[in-house]
């Protein structure tokens, strides 16, 4: 186990080295003058030149790369060209906001997906199975941005049950501002006893979380169903049935236990899918998280921010998968 953890950690480092190199050279090959972007549209030529020297952009690319890596090792990702703040500081502020959405979406997708999949498998061939099949097929097929727009149209425009976008109503921003402690707004509001803001944030989160949940929910439900049905066809289930184990135990104990490993794998992969989806969903719901930040960075050719976001998402992704691998090794003795 220790060796495995060490290997995964080494793998993470190697991946970050490759990722940072790729990100650096890719972003540098994009069109546009970084120095000009940094000082803004109305700057004079000499101001741009001064910024160029200040940012080290006059040096050869390879020297810039060396400098970038050195800074990166010290946790310095440079200054954002758009916000003019350290990228690290921006990320630390934005990541919890997104993780809040991602965590809820993952929780609902995993629990709901497993529940639907198990129900469908248990009632295999029935009308209920058929209904779930249709629902999950639709869930995996619908584009997330389109589903997000439908949610807004229906729940805001038609029913008026949920807010259109944002994280907190404007008047609450002034009357009950959220104190930043962990960065997770739901946690922060509870710690500070700011319940007005707590319920308001939760209310704002419903639609974006729903938009993030739907796709992974469908994938997890479908995989759970097929993994369970596959397990129930195995020789060891037949042998257990022949030795007098009741159908209930066969399905809900042996079946679920044996189907757990593939289900966990797909839940791990869902993390990546949800992270990626935050890009559209946060844009559509105007949620001030990492996805919104990344899109804004792309729109304004904010190289440094873009590099930071890529590295951060890569890290989160690898860590989520490592975590899932560890859990899988615990539940499945065959993986050795």
């Amino acid at each position: 186990m220790l060796l495995f953890l060490f290997k995964r950690f080494a793998g993470l480092i190697a991946l970050l080295v490759v990722l940072s190199t790729l990100v650096f050279f890719f972003t540098r090959s994009l069109p546009g003058d970084v120095a000009a972007l940094y000082v803004g549209g109305t700057a004079k030529a000499e101001e741009i030149e001064r910024a160029r020297v200040e940012l080290g952009l006059d040096k050869p690319l390879i020297v810039q790369y060396k400098c970038y890596i050195q800074k990166l090792l010290q946790g310095d990702m440079g200054i954002s060209l758009r916000t003019h703040r350290p990228v690290m500081q921006d990320l630390m502020e934005k990541i919890p906001m997104s993780m809040e959405l991602v965590c809820w979406a993952l929780l609902f997708a995993a629990s709901g997906g497993v529940l639907l999949g198990v129900t469908a498998a248990y009632h295999q061939g029935s009308l209920l199975d058929e209904v779930i099949k249709w629902f999950t097929s639709a869930a995996v097929s619908i584009p997330i941005f389109f589903f997000a727009l439908l949610l807004q149209l229906f729940f805001f425009n038609v029913l008026g049950w949920f807010p259109l976008q944002g994280r907190l109503d404007t008047f609450l921003e002034f009357s009950n501002p959220i104190e930043n402690i962990t960065g997770f707004s739901l946690v922060d509001t509870i710690i500070t006893g700011n319940f007005a803001a707590f319920f308001n944030v939760a209310w704002h989160m419903v639609l974006p979380v729903a938009a993030l949940t739907i796709g992974p929910l469908g994938i997890i439900a479908r995989l759970t169903r097929s993994a369970l049905l596959d397990v129930m066809q195995q020789d060891y289930i037949l042998a257990a049935r022949a030795s007098g184990i009741s159908e209930w135990v066969l399905f809900f104990y042996y079946g679920l236990r044996n189907a757990l490993s593939p289900v966990l794998t797909v839940i791990g992969l869902s993390v990546a899918l949800i992270l990626l989806s935050t890009f559209y969903v946060e844009m559509i719901f105007n949620w001030p998280g990492i996805g919104y930040y990344a899109l804004a960075a792309i729109m304004s050719l904010d190289y440094t921010a873009l590099m930071g976001v890529s590295l951060m998402i890569g890290t989160v992704y690898v860590m989520a998968n490592t975590l899932m691998d560890i859990v899988r090794r615990i539940v499945d003795p065959r993986i050795k």
Binding site: D235, Y236, A239, Y254, N258, V331, D332, R334
Partner: peptide, 10 residues
């Protein structure tokens, strides 16, 4: 017939 696959692997 297949003794190994007749035993639950987990």
């Amino acid at each position: 017939q297949n003794p190994q696959s007749s035993i639950n692997p987990l």
